[in-house]
Design a protein around this nucleic acid. Structure first.
Lengths: 240, 240
DNA sequence: CAAAGTCAAGAGCAGTGCTCTCAATTGTTG
DNA sequence: CAACAATTGAGAGCACTGCTCTTGACTTTG
C-alpha cells in the first residue's frame, strides 16, 4: 500500500483523496458513536462497517486494524478534551490563576460526565492487548497537563504562587522535577511542582471516582458541591 | 476463600458439594491468572475451561455466565486488597494515625503495582455491558475507605486531627456528610470529612496514574519518592 | 436397586478480528 | 476518447468468543 493518502501537508488534491478522507472521517464519527454507547472494549469494526453500509473487509481498506481505529479515536478524544479545556481556561483572564484552575477542573469534569466512555478510554484501565503509539498520542495527550502547568507558571511569574512545602526534596525526585522544568520551559520551584503533580492526579482521581461510579450509589446527592469543595482545596494545595 | 457454593451457612456437607466447591475454587484461581495476564475485558470462559481441562460448556455448570465469573473475581480482588490494607494498617500502633494512613496508602499502591489488571478491574473503566451486583460487591468494596475513615475517626477522638477548612459547607454537601457520619458511625466534622473524601480519591488518582501509565514514559524515574511526597501532603491535607 | 440428581461432551448459533481473492468501478493518462 | 492501472467493495473463510441445548454417562440418595 502506498502513501495511505499522499497528501503531504494535509491538503487534499484529487477527488479520490477527497472521498477517502471523507470515508475515514465517517468511520471515526461512527466509531465515536459506538465508543460512546458501548464502551472501548466493545468497539467492533464489523458494527461500524454495518452502520457505514459496507461489508467489514472494506473498512480495512481505510483503517488497517481495530487498534488503529482505537488510536484514531484516542487522539480524537484527547483533542476534544483539550479543546474544551482550552476554551474554558481561555475564558478567564490570565491574571486570575485560581479562576483559570477552577475553569480547567470544571471543564475536565464536565467533559468526563458528558463522555464517560471516551473518558474511560483516556484515563481508565488500558484496553488489553492495545498499546497506544506514543508518537501519535503524547502530543494531544499532554494538552491538559500542559495547560495546568502553564497556569502554575503564570502565577509563579506574577509572584502570586504561594510558597508551600519543604525547600528541598529527595535528590532523585528533584532531578525528575528539574527535567520536567527543562522540558516544559517553566520555572516553578520543586515543592510547588511536586504539589502540582499531586493536584493534577487528584483532579483526575476525583473525576474518575464520579464517572466510574466508585462512590457508593447515592452516597453523594450533591456531587457538584463536593467537586467545588475539591477545587477550592486543590487550588490552595497548588498555592494558587 | 470460603464456600462460594449454595451451602446456606457456608458449611460443606456432601462429597458432591466438596467437589463442586473445589471446582469453583479452581475456576476462580484460573480466572485470576487469566485476569492478571490478559486483563479484564479479555477474560475468556473458554480459555479458563481449556486450562481446567474441560470443555467450555461444562464450566457453565459452575458459574452461570462470564459476568458471574467477573463478579467472583471482583469480590476476590476487593478482599485481597482489603486484607493487604488491613494487615499493613494493623502493623502500625493505633495511636500513630499518620503512620497508619501512610501504611494504608503504601499498601494500596503496592498491591496495585503488583496486580495491575485486578486493580484495573476494581478502579478502572467499567467493563462494558457489565454491572456489578451491589449486594455482593459493596461490602468488600468499601473495606479500604472504611479503614481510612476509621483512621480519621480515631485521630479525631484522640484530639489529634487538626482543624482544617471552613466551619460550614454548602447545605446539600453538609447533608450528605451527615448521612455518611451516621452510616459509618463516626464523628469527624464536616470540613475534615470532605477533605477526607478528597484525600481518598486523590490517593487512588495518584495510584491510577502510575498503574495505568498516564505519566509520560520515563517522566518519573523515582516514583517511590514521588509517592512518599504525595503521602505526606495528603496526610497534612487530611489533618493527620 | 432404581429413581433422582449431576455432570461433561458435542453440536450449533451469532458474534468478533482479520486475510485473501476476485470482480467492478473509478481516475488518470497516452 | 479509449486503454490502463489504481482503488475499491464483496464474499468466503479461519480462528476465536459467549452461550444454549441435547445426549449419554455417572454418582448419590431413597
Amino acid at each position: 500500500m502506498r502513501a495511505t493518502s499522499q497528501t503531504v501537508g494535509g491538503e487534499i488534491r484529487t477527488p479520490r483523496e477527497r472521498a477517502r478522507a471523507q470515508t475515514i472521517a465517517d468511520i471515526i464519527r461512527l466509531g465515536r458513536q459506538h465508543l460512546a454507547e458501548h464502551g472501548a472494549a466493545a468497539l467492533s469494526l464489523r458494527a461500524v462497517a454495518r452502520d457505514l453500509g459496507v461489508v467489514s473487509s472494506a473498512v480495512y481498506r481505510y483503517v488497517g486494524s481495530r487498534d488503529e481505529l482505537l488510536t484514531l479515536l484516542l487522539v480524537d478524544a484527547y483533542n476534544d478534551l483539550g479543546d474544551t479545556v482550552d476554551a474554558a481556561v481561555g475564558s478567564v483572564p490570565a491574571e486570575e490563576s485560581r479562576g483559570r484552575f477552577a475553569a480547567l477542573a470544571r471543564a475536565v469534569r464536565g467533559w468526563a460526565l458528558r463522555e464517560p466512555a471516551r473518558y474511560g478510554l483516556l484515563f481508565g484501565s488500558p484496553v488489553p492487548g492495545y498499546q497506544a503509539p506514543a508518537e501519535r498520542t503524547t502530543a494531544p495527550g499532554t494538552r491538559v497537563v500542559n495547560s495546568l502547568v502553564e497556569i502554575l507558571n503564570a502565577a509563579h511569574r506574577a509572584g502570586r504562587l504561594a510558597e508551600r512545602g519543604p525547600s528541598s526534596l529527595p535528590v532523585p525526585l528533584a532531578a525528575d522535577l528539574e527535567a520536567i522544568r527543562r522540558e516544559l520551559n517553566v520555572e516553578v520551584p520543586d515543592a510547588l511542582l511536586a504539589r502540582g503533580t499531586l493536584v493534577w492526579t487528584s483532579l483526575f482521581g476525583a473525576v474518575s471516582f464520579e464517572v466510574f461510579g466508585q462512590y457508593g450509589a447515592g452516597t453523594f446527592s450533591a456531587p457538584d458541591e463536593l467537586f467545588e469543595h475539591h477545587i477550592a482545596v486543590l487550588a490552595d494545595l497548588a498555592g494558587l
